[in-house]
């Protein structure tokens, strides 16, 4: 018994010694422990489902666990604040989205997107203007003409004042050039209010609209974008209809400011590989978002462009309360 214990002990010490030598060799190599993958929205929602799958795919590339953690609240503000206050070592990354721009604009975080470092975009999807399946408007033009004939009468539902869908709805309103009533009914009641007839239309992400549109309960009229989306090629864009509105819902990855360049490069590479993995592509096909990794300057451009759109729309609507210094 005694001998056994001694042998075991020696063996253990040896193993530890070897392990620490080994770790010493690879210390420079990021990552060496689990990475926290913060999701700003609740379990079961599309941000959560997509984020979890991406985290899983990234974990396979990086060889360490990438652990999804939901930090919900304030339309993303809780997650972005947590990320900003985290150590810039690459072990905390956030599943950011257009909500970063909107929560900064409405003043729920006292900083803007430049306070974080960005790995880049993973995917995007258009936000769709939809009406009830049996509504009298067959096309967006009919809808806009009705609005012009009856200004201040049409009601458009969105997920909440200052959310990306509200910004898109205001963009649609501006493009039509007539007043509408915005109903900030929340994510869960957005489609329900159109189905009950309470709202005449809703603006919602494609992934949240597609299922009900397929079942004939909703009719997709247009997307406030420049290019037709491959997932819903039948839905005309506002640009081609002659209206000026261009705002997609993007999802991207962000890390704290000051994360070492080598770490950022490794994470970027993992992000792009994971985004193009078979599992993530399957999910994109099933749910209806478009995978389009954008890194470096390309993504900076997107942030700058979308940021300007959000700010100008918020200012126009009188809800711009940014606390950025």
């Amino acid at each position: 018994m005694y001998r056994f214990t001694k042998t075991t002990l020696t063996g253990l010490i040896g193993a530890f010694a070897m392990a620490s030598c080994f770790m010493g060799v690879v210390r420079a190599e990021f990552p060496e422990k689990a990475i926290e993958f913060v999701i700003p929205f609740g379990a079961g929602g599309s941000a959560d489902i997509e984020g979890r799958l991406l985290a899983n795919a990234m974990s396979k590339v990086l060889g360490v666990p990438v652990v999804p953690v939901n930090k919900v609240g304030g339309g993303g503000a809780v997650t972005y604040t947590h990320l900003k206050n985290s150590k810039p070592d690459g072990y905390t990354i956030a599943w950011a989205s257009t909500s970063l721009l909107t929560s900064s604009g409405i003043g729920n975080i006292p900083f803007d997107h430049s306070a974080l470092d960005h790995l880049g975009q993973v995917e995007f999807q258009p936000m769709i203007v939809s009406v009830k399946g049996n509504a009298k408007w067959q096309t967006f033009k009919e809808f806009a003409d009705y609005c012009k004939a009856n200004p201040g009468k049409l009601k458009i539902a969105n997920s909440g004042t200052g959310s990306a869908t509200h910004i898109a709805a205001v963009a649609v309103e501006n493009a039509m050039g007539c007043k509408v009533i915005h109903l900030p009914v929340g994510i869960k009641r957005r489609n329900a209010t159109v189905l009950s007839g309470e709202a005449d239309a809703a603006v919602g992400p494609l992934t949240a609209t597609r299922r009900l549109a397929k079942a004939g309960k909703l009719r997709m009229l247009a997307a406030p974008t420049a290019e037709r989306n491959p997932v819903a090629p039948d839905v005309p864009t506002m640009k081609e209809l002659g209206y000026d509105a261009d705002l997609d819902l993007f999802r991207s990855l962000a890390v704290p400011k000051g994360t070492p360049a080598a770490v950022v490069a490794r994470l970027k590479e993992a992000m792009v590989t994971a985004a193009n993995s078979a599992a993530f592509k399957d999910l994109a096909k099933k749910n209806g978002f478009t995978i389009k990794p954008l890194v470096g300057k390309d993504f900076d451009q997107r942030l700058a462009k979308d940021g300007a759109v959000v700010i100008s729309i918020m200012k126009g609507a009188g809800i711009y309360k940014s606390k950025t210094k």
Binding site: V72, G73, G74, G75, A77, V78, T81, H82, I106, G107, N108, I109, G160, T161, G162, S163, P184, G186, I319, K321
Partner: peptide
């Protein structure tokens, strides 16, 4: 306490981000 459900702004949170989600 938390985010105003209509306006999206903070309410009775005393600038504490933990209270933003109520």
């Amino acid at each position: 306490v938390g985010q105003d459900p209509m306006m999206g702004t903070a309410r009775f949170t005393f600038d504490n981000v933990n209270l933003l989600s109520g």
